[in-house]
C-alpha cells in the first residue's frame, strides 16, 4: 500500500436474524463493523455479502445500504453453501487493506470460526474483539481490542488483516429507507469458485442438523456479601480474581496432563477415585 493512497476497507455483511421473531435483519455485529468503517475519514468502504439473494434477504441487505454505503458487492451462493471459498476469492480480487466482520453469524452454523478460517486461507493476521480503529497508516493499523469488564488493549497490526468486531463497538447508525432503496446490489458471479464451494457443500445440509433457539448458559450464582453501595459496585466491576494459578512452561505433554488432572481433582470437577 502506498502511503498516500486511500485505504480500502472491505466489510463482510451477513443476513442476521432477530432473536425474538427470527426475521431477517442486518446482523448487529456486522452493522457495527460497517458503522466503524463509515466513520473512518478518507477510506474507501467496500461492503461485501456472500450468500443467497431472495426477497427477505434483500430487505436485510438493503438496510446496510440505508446506513450510507452506496453499493454492496454480492457474491451469490446457494442456501447452505460454504461461503469461505467465495469470500476468499472475492477478497483476493478486491485487495482490501482491512477486512472488518462480525465475530459470529446470527444464524446457521454460527461457529464464530469464519474470521479465523478466512485469515488463515488468506495468510493475514486476525484480531477479534475489535472496538475501535485508532489510526491507519501505510502498512499498519493501531486498533483497540475489547477485554472483559470494559478493559481495552491497544494493538498494532500489519496490514492487510482481518478484524472481527466486539459487541462493545459503537452501535450502528439508523438505517434510512431512501438510501436503502437507491443503493445498488452488485452481483458478481464467480463460477470457478462457486463450483468449488458447491463441491464441499456445507456439512449442515449433509448432516441434516436440527436447529433450535440457543439458550443462555446458566451463570454461577454470585452471592454478594457487600453491605454498602460502594462494595457492591466494586464486586460488580472487579476483575475476576485468579488466585493460586501457575504458569506451566516447557513441560512434557504427560506432565502437563498430570498437572491438569490434579487441578481438576482439587476443584472437585473429577472424582479422585474414578480418575485413577
Amino acid at each position: 500500500m502506498l502511503p498516500d493512497s486511500t485505504a480500502r476497507i472491505a466489510v463482510l455483511l451477513s443476513v442476521g436474524q432477530h432473536p425474538l421473531t427470527a426475521r431477517p435483519r442486518r446482523a448487529d455485529q456486522d452493522a457495527r463493523a460497517l458503522e466503524l468503517a463509515l466513520q473512518l475519514p478518507g477510506v474507501e468502504v467496500l461492503p461485501v455479502h456472500a450468500g443467497e439473494l431472495n426477497d427477505q434477504n434483500e430487505t436485510a441487505l438493503r438496510s446496510y445500504l440505508g446506513m450510507g454505503a452506496s453499493a454492496l458487492k454480492l457474491l451469490p451462493a446457494a442456501e447452505g453453501e460454504d461461503v469461505l471459498p467465495l469470500l476468499q476469492q472475492g477478497l483476493r480480487d478486491l485487495q482490501p487493506d482491512l477486512v472488518l466482520c462480525g465475530k459470529r453469524a446470527e444464524h446457521g452454523e454460527s461457529s464464530g470460526l469464519m474470521p479465523y478460517l478466512l485469515a488463515q486461507s488468506l495468510g493475514w493476521p486476525v484480531i477479534s474483539g475489535l472496538v475501535e480503529i485508532e489510526r491507519l497508516e501505510a502498512g499498519h493499523a493501531t486498533v483497540l481490542q475489547a477485554l472483559p469488564r470494559g478493559q481495552r488493549r491497544r494493538l498494532r497490526v500489519t496490514l492487510p488483516a482481518v478484524l472481527a468486531m466486539d459487541d462493545a463497538a459503537p452501535a450502528a447508525r439508523q438505517s434510512a429507507f431512501g438510501p436503502a432503496r437507491r443503493g445498488v446490489l452488485e452481483v458478481e458471479q464467480m463460477v470457478a469458485v462457486a463450483e468449488q464451494g458447491l463441491a464441499n457443500l456445507n456439512n449442515l445440509s449433509v448432516l441434516n442438523w436440527q436447529f433450535q433457539p440457543a439458550r443462555k448458559r446458566p451463570k454461577r450464582l454470585k452471592i454478594i456479601k457487600a453491605t454498602s453501595a460502594r462494595d457492591r459496585f466494586k464486586a460488580a466491576a472487579a476483575k475476576a480474581e485468579s488466585s493460586g494459578g501457575q504458569v506451566l512452561q516447557g513441560l512434557t505433554p504427560d506432565a502437563a496432563a498430570e498437572t491438569i488432572l490434579k487441578m481438576l481433582r482439587e476443584e472437585g470437577v473429577m472424582n479422585s477415585t474414578h480418575g485413577d
Binding site: M67, Q174, A176, F177, G178
Partner: peptide, 11 residues
Amino acid sequence: TLERGQTPNKG
C-alpha cells in the same frame, strides 16, 4: 427519517 436516518434519541 426516510432520507437521513436522523430520528433523534430513542426514535
